[in-house]
C-alpha cells in the first residue's frame, strides 16, 4: 500500500467516524433535506476550482460556507416556502455546478476520488475530524435539549439559533472532509446512511451514536478494500456497502434485535 493510499484509508475511516456522529444528530434533528442541499452546494465550488486549476477542496469549502449561511437564513424563516426554497437551491447548485465543471472532471466531482492525499491534506483532514469531534462533544447536551424541544432548550438559557448554526457549520465541515472520497452527489449518503443503520438498531442514545459511527467506519473500510480488489469507483462502492448494511439492519430490526 502506498503512503497516499494509507493516508486515504486512515482519513476516510476517521471521516466516517465523525460522519456517523454528525449524521445521528442530523437524523434526530430531521434535517436530512437541508443536509443534502449543503452537500450539493460543494459542486459549484469544485467546478470552479477544476476550471481555475486550484485545489478542489478550497473551492468546495468556499461554496459550502456560503451555502451554510444561506440555509441558516432560510431555516430561520421556517414554513412551507422555506422547504420549497431549499429544494430550489438544491437543484440550482447541482445544475450550476454541472455546467461549471469541465467534462473530464465531472465524474470525479460528482462521485469522488479526485487526486491523491499528501501530508498536508492528510494533516488538515485529521485536524478537521478533531474539530468536528470536539465540537460535537462540547455541544451534545445542548443539541439533545434542542432536539427534544427548542422551547424547553430556550427556557433553560440555551441560545438555540447559535447552537443550530454551529451544528450546521460542523455539518458543512464533515461534508468537506467526505467530498474527496464520495463527491458532491454521494457525500450526503456517508452522513445519513450509517446514521439510518444506527437508528434501526439502537434503543439508547449511546448505542445510536456508537452503531452509526461503527457502520460508517465499516462502510468506508470495506469500501476501500472492495474498490481496491475489483478496481471499482471508491465513492459508489462505499455507499453500496453502507446501503447493504442498512438493508441488513432492517432485517435485524424485523427480527427484533437491538442494542
Amino acid at each position: 500500500m502506498t503512503q497516499a493510499n494509507t493516508f486515504s484509508v486512515i482519513l476516510g475511516v476517521a471521516t466516517a467516524l465523525v460522519s456517523g456522529l454528525v449524521g445521528s444528530f442530523a437524523l434526530m434533528k430531521r434535517m436530512t433535506l437541508a443536509g443534502d442541499v449543503v452537500s450539493h452546494l460543494a459542486l459549484p465550488g469544485l467546478g470552479l476550482a477544476f476550471l481555475w486549476h486550484i485545489n478542489p477542496l478550497i473551492g468546495a469549502a468556499a461554496t459550502l460556507a456560503i451555502g451554510i449561511v444561506l440555509i441558516d437564513a432560510l431555516q430561520r424563516r421556517g414554513g412551507l416556502a422555506t422547504e420549497t426554497a431549499i429544494g430550489v437551491v438544491f437543484v440550482a447548485a447541482l445544475a450550476i455546478g454541472t455546467l461549471l465543471t469541465p467534462q473530464e472532471d465531472l465524474i470525479d466531482a460528482l462521485f469522488g476520488g479526485f487526486g491523491a492525499i499528501g501530508v498536508t491534506g492528510f494533516s488538515l483532514g485529521l485536524a478537521g475530524c478533531a474539530v468536528v469531534l470536539v465540537t460535537i462533544y462540547l455541544i451534545r447536551h445542548k443539541l439533545i435539549l434542542i432536539i427534544f424541544s427548542s422551547d424547553l432548550a430556550q427556557s433553560v438559557g440555551i441560545h438555540v439559533r447559535r447552537i443550530n448554526f454551529l451544528y450546521l457549520a460542523i455539518f458543512g465541515l464533515t461534508i468537506l472532509l467526505g467530498v474527496h472520497f464520495l463527491g458532491a452527489l454521494l457525500v450526503g449518503a456517508m452522513i445519513i446512511v450509517p446514521a439510518a443503520v444506527g437508528r434501526q438498531l439502537a434503543r439508547t442514545l449511546d448505542s445510536f451514536l456508537l452503531i452509526s459511527s461503527l457502520a460508517g467506519m465499516l462502510s468506508v473500510g470495506t469500501g476501500f478494500a472492495v474498490a481496491g480488489i475489483w478496481h471499482l469507483a471508491l465513492g459508489p462502492t462505499i455507499v453500496g456497502v453502507a446501503s447493504a448494511l442498512f438493508t441488513l439492519s432492517l432485517a435485524a430490526r424485523e427480527k427484533g434485535s437491538g442494542l
Binding site: 434526530m28 430531521r30 447536551h141 445542548k142 439533545i144 435539549l145 432536539i147 427534544f148 424541544s149 445510536f208
Partner: peptide, 18 residues
C-alpha cells in the same frame, strides 16, 4: 412537545443534559 418522539432519547438523557 413537538419533538419526534421516536428518537432514542430517554428521560435520563434529558435530565443529565439539563
Amino acid at each position: 412537545i413537538d419533538a419526534d418522539r421516536s428518537v432514542p432519547l430517554n428521560v435520563r438523557n434529558l435530565l443529565e443534559s439539563k
